[in-house]
Design a protein around this nucleic acid. Structure first.
Length: 417
DNA sequence: TAATGCGCACAAG
DNA sequence: CTTGTGCGCATTA
């Protein structure tokens, strides 16, 4: 993970550039960090990458160039027209974690939320690197389905788009897998992000109109797995999608909400637990019609990660339990969750917390080396005071996530007995 | 010369 | 209208 010190430096730099009305791009960030702290640009760049993976920093493509955002300060503004979400909307538009209390999103919002910056497109890695993976590998498949997807945007579309540059090139997985590994280290072949051609969907909650999808880098907890699996999407076509798992937590959340479509389907297919997490891409593409997309994760780690997501959906599901189907899937998820929670690594926990809308607080979990087992042992006071995080987010994290995870875990255990 | 400051145009809700 | 963003140019160190 990134050094706390660097994290502060970089975040300060981004904030500083923003306040100065200068684009917080890699060059400026590196320059300012070097000037202020004397660290090498390469190092800064590397740390920045880590922060992106932790989602502490969002890498977005805005107006044709790469920009970095302090995730904690991103204000969610667009809520889309997605029906259900609309209602709860706005309540917290303005929550900057810093200022007020930092919570980013939790409640109502957090679930769907997400935000996005205006039209920023998440970009995952630098364009620089060699690792750009390409979309293409699965291009074929996608084209089948997505081909139709319209991309509203013209030039900007570049990124999302089909072709050329992909916003996402996913490097791999830092967090998920081995904490020690450098993000960049990657595994080109292992994790690929498949970005699909269609950039965004207007209707999707997150739809970024042009290219904004906030998913930033892709951090795929799993680095080792090979790539994707194929599933029948229902349309009959087979899709191979590899997903950088952590791609967009926000998006995922929103998707989760609608998991009834995808989730149910998946469950039917028997794969149940693992494939509920949609990736932002999918989300974006769903615009015209949400087609059921499924994604698969290559490795166990990914699977674990997913499970984490499932948990999130579980939580949300509780809020609005609408139908049996959903409950059914929940139980399936719980099962997978249970066994995996014990296997969660520190990185998995951090990823989960981050994906739940608390990137800043995720760092604290990581710093305190909270892994799945530790998470199960955490008490309210530990979360509220032991992590040195703000009370608001801490309460939300405890009540909505830690407690739920623990309860789910222990209840399952009882069932087994 | 580099770092900063900031007016203003854009885009989106 | 409001808000976030960042270009482009003026100013400052």
């Amino acid at each position: 993970m990134s050094e706390p010190m660097y994290r502060d430096w970089i975040l300060d730099t981004i904030d500083s550039l923003r306040s100065r009305k200068a684009r917080p791009d890699l060059e400026r960030i590196c320059r300012m960090v070097r000037r202020r702290h004397g660290s090498a640009p390469e190092q800064t760049s590397e740390e920045l990458e880590k922060l992106i993976q932790e989602q502490t920093v969002l890498k977005v493509n805005y107006k044709g160039s790469i920009s970095y955002r302090n995730a904690a300060k991103v204000v969610r503004r667009s809520r889309k027209k997605d029906d259900h979400t609309t209602k709860r909307t706005a309540v917290e538009e303005a929550n900057h974690s810093d200022l007020s209390n930092g919570d980013s999103a939790l409640g109502p919002i957090d679930q769907d939320e997400t935000e996005h910056l205006e039209n920023e497109v998440p970009v995952s890695m630098e364009t620089d690197s060699t690792m750009e993976e390409e979309e293409e590998q699965e291009g074929a498949d996608e084209d089948d389905h997505e081909g139709s997807s319209p991309s509203p945007e013209g030039e900007d579309a570049v990124q999302g788009g089909s072709g050329a540059a992909h916003p996402y090139s996913a490097p791999c997985s830092p967090s998920g897998s081995r904490p020690g590994q450098s993000p960049v280290s990657d595994c080109p072949s292992t994790c690929k992000t498949s970005r699909r051609s269609s950039p965004l969907s207007p209707s999707s909650p997150l739809a970024l109109r042009q290219n904004d999808c906030v998913c930033d880098s892709a951090f795929c907890p799993a680095d080792h797995g090979p790539s994707g699996m194929q599933r029948n999407t229902g349309s009959g076509a087979l899709k191979t999608i590899v997903q950088p798992s952590g791609t967009c937590p926000w998006v995922q959340k929103s998707l989760v909400k609608r998991e009834r479509e995808d989730g149910v389907r998946m469950e039917e297919s028997g794969l149940a637990s693992d494939q509920l997490v949609p990736d932002c891409v999918d989300e974006t593409m769903k615009g015209s019609d949400r087609r059921p997309k499924t994604t698969s994760f290559p490795s166990d780690d990914c699977a674990k990660y997913k499970k984490g997501m499932d948990v999130a959906s579980y939580v949300m599901a509780q809020d609005d339990v609408k139908n049996d189907v959903k409950n059914r899937e929940i139980s399936v998820k719980k099962e997978t969750l249970r066994q995996n929670l014990l296997l969660w690594s520190v990185a998995d926990v951090a990823t989960y917390i981050s994906a739940a809308g608390f990137p800043e607080q995720a760092v604290a979990f990581r710093t305190q080396e909270i892994d799945g087992k530790s998470l199960l042992l955490m008490q309210r006071s530990d979360v509220l005071t032991g992590l040195s995080i703000r009370l608001g987010p801490a309460l939300k994290i405890y009540e909505r996530h830690v407690k739920v995870l623990q309860r789910t875990h222990f209840l399952d255990e009882e069932d087994d007995l």
